[in-house]
Structures are given as C-alpha cells and as structure tokens.
C-alpha cells in the first residue's frame, strides 16, 4: 500500500446531455464533445485502473452514497431535456473500491453507504461522463453523490476519504468532477443556434475560474468556492462544492498542469472540459485562513449551548 495515491489526471466536465445527444445541433456543443473525445483518448493512453466520479447531479440526503453495483444497466432520460433522446447504459463499476471508499468515509466520521440496486437511477451527469469518457467500460468506475446539506468541512473530508481508499487499494485513478461553472440556464426553450452564456457576469467569472484552472491553481479555486457560489451559482444547494472535493481528492495545492479543452454555453450554463495533471512546481501567492479538516465531527451543537 502506498501512502500517496497515484492520480494520473483530473477532469472537470459539464453535466448536461447536449454533448452526448445533440453535439451536431450547436457548434459549441460539438466543441465540448470533441474535448470529451480528447479526454477519452488520453484516459485510454494512461494506465489508469479506476475512474472516480463526483457528480453534482446526484444529490443525496442520508450521508454520502457510493455506487457499488458491478454492472448497472438502465435507460436514462433527463428531466428537462427528455426531447433530446434516451441514454441507454451498461457500466462497469469497481465494487471493491466503492466498499473501501465507504469504509474510509466512516473512518473519518462521515455517514456513507454503498448502493447496488437494479434500476437505480444513475444521474444525467454521471451517465454523460461515463458514456463519453469511458464508452467501452475500459476501466471500472465509481460514482459518489453530492449531499445536499454538506458544506466545506464535510466535502473536504469526503475527498480525503477518496484518497485513503485509492492508497489502500493501490489504484491509479482518473478523478472526474461533473459540474457546471455558472449554472444558470435560460428558463425558456431556445433555438440551439442561439445558445450563449446566460449573462456577461457569468461569462466573466467563468473565464476567471478557467484562468485559475489553466494555471493549475486548484487549491486557489477551492478556497474561492464561497465567492463562486455567491456570484454565479443558482442557490439550489448550500455551497459550490465540486472544487472542495476535487482539491481534497487530488491534493490541496496548486501543483498542476492545467488545460482548458473547451468552454461553451449549455442552454445558458457555463460548460467546460478541463484537464489537470499533477506536476511539480506551484503557482499563486495566496495563503488561506480556513482550517484544513481531517475528520468530520458533525454538528457543533451550537443550539444546545444555551442563550447568552
């Protein structure tokens, strides 16, 4: 068992079905599809033996759920974009890693469980990522949910638990985060040709985030998560969590080679395909004042401490 996990690369990809189902309908959607294809090729050329996905379109409430069905088979249809078509799938999951991840979560104080049920609804973002990045199930995968109530501490510990399990099993891993940048879509149906980022503000923030990614500044983006949530994220959940999890999983530093393969609008939301490759030498000039977290202690029972 190695101390540090071997992460061959990290990917940040959008959850929308358009690159999978309708890439020919819009030039930008086609560019995102091409970027997915490039990533697929790079994964095939790597010697990774696990693809670990954190999907913002798989919400959980009871702790953190980890997909452990060795061969989930179903046909998925998106709630909003059902008219683009169906997504039949048959995936190959790494059940051993899933169980190990659950144990690692519990060892760090998290409530977690594996799910392995026929017909379980794998979410749009995970289906899109797996079908485009790993179409032949060349390497086994695992998916972890995004708890709707979790915040920074819990999310960081969840990432560290993923590392624990990778180290324990000696896995070579491709880490995939499925999330938009800005996530405000148009609220009406649009002609695909008219797609664009919803607002200039969303676009400006997206480009600043992409600049950080391009410079490999993953930990800096993680530290900016609260600002990102306030500025360009629709308040569906309490926080913008993907960067917290991605940094905690890949390593909380800025030592990465970053590459933005595509950045396009997806019904108004900011969709980007980004690759981070662990490297030597960091960038950035920031230090941070939020504590790092190793173990999740749950609620601090503030309400039970009485009134002043």
């Amino acid at each position: 068992m190695s101390e540090e996990p071997e992460i061959v690369l990290g990917l940040y990809v959008p959850p929308h079905p358009h690159p999978l189902l309708a890439s020919e309908q819009n030039e930008g959607w086609g560019k995102l599809r091409d970027a997915f294809d490039t990533c697929r090729q790079r994964i095939e050329e790597s010697d990774a033996d696990l693809m670990l996905i954190y999907s913002t379109t798989w919400p959980s409430i009871v702790g953190h759920q980890i997909q452990a069905h060795p061969k989930p088979v179903f046909t998925h249809v998106d709630d909003d974009f059902h008219f683009l078509g169906s997504m039949p799938y048959e995936f190959h999951m790494d059940a051993e890693y899933a169980e190990c991840y659950r144990e690692a979560c519990e060892a760090r104080g998290l409530h977690a469980r594996t799910v392995a049920f026929d017909g379980f609804p794998i979410d749009t973002g995970s289906v899109v990522a797996l079908k485009l990045l790993n179409p032949d199930n060349r390497i086994p995968a695992c998916i972890v949910s995004s708890n709707v109530y979790s915040n920074r501490a819990e999310q960081i510990v969840l990432g560290k638990a993923a590392r624990d399990a990778m180290s324990k099993l000696g896995k070579k891993v491709v880490v995939v985060v499925v999330a938009s940048l800005s996530n405000r879509m148009f609220t009406e149906h649009i002609d695909p040709a008219d797609d664009r980022i919803h607002s200039a503000k969303d676009d400006e923030w997206n480009r600043k985030i992409l600049e950080f990614f391009e410079n490999g500044r993953l930990e800096d983006i993680s530290q900016l998560s609260r600002d990102i949530q306030g500025q360009i994220r629709v308040s569906k959940v309490v926080a913008y969590k993907p960067a917290w999890w991605m940094a905690a999983t890949m390593g909380q530093h800025n030592n990465y080679d970053g590459e933005v393969l595509a950045y396009e609008a997806l019904h108004g939301a900011g969709g980007a395909v980004i690759q981070l490759t662990p490297a030597k030498g960091g960038v950035g000039d920031k230090e941070f004042d939020e504590d790092d977290v190793e173990f999740y202690h749950g609620d601090r029972s503030v309400l039970d401490k009485g009134m002043l």
Partner: peptide, 14 residues
C-alpha cells in the same frame, strides 16, 4: 411501465 428506484432512499423504495 417501469421500476422506480428512489435515488435518496433506494433501500426503501423500488
């Protein structure tokens, strides 16, 4: 006609 598996409580509802 299908099976509905609750994504949050799959242990309870299939």
């Amino acid at each position: 006609q299908n099976i509905s598996v609750d994504p949050i409580f799959p242990n309870l509802f299939r």
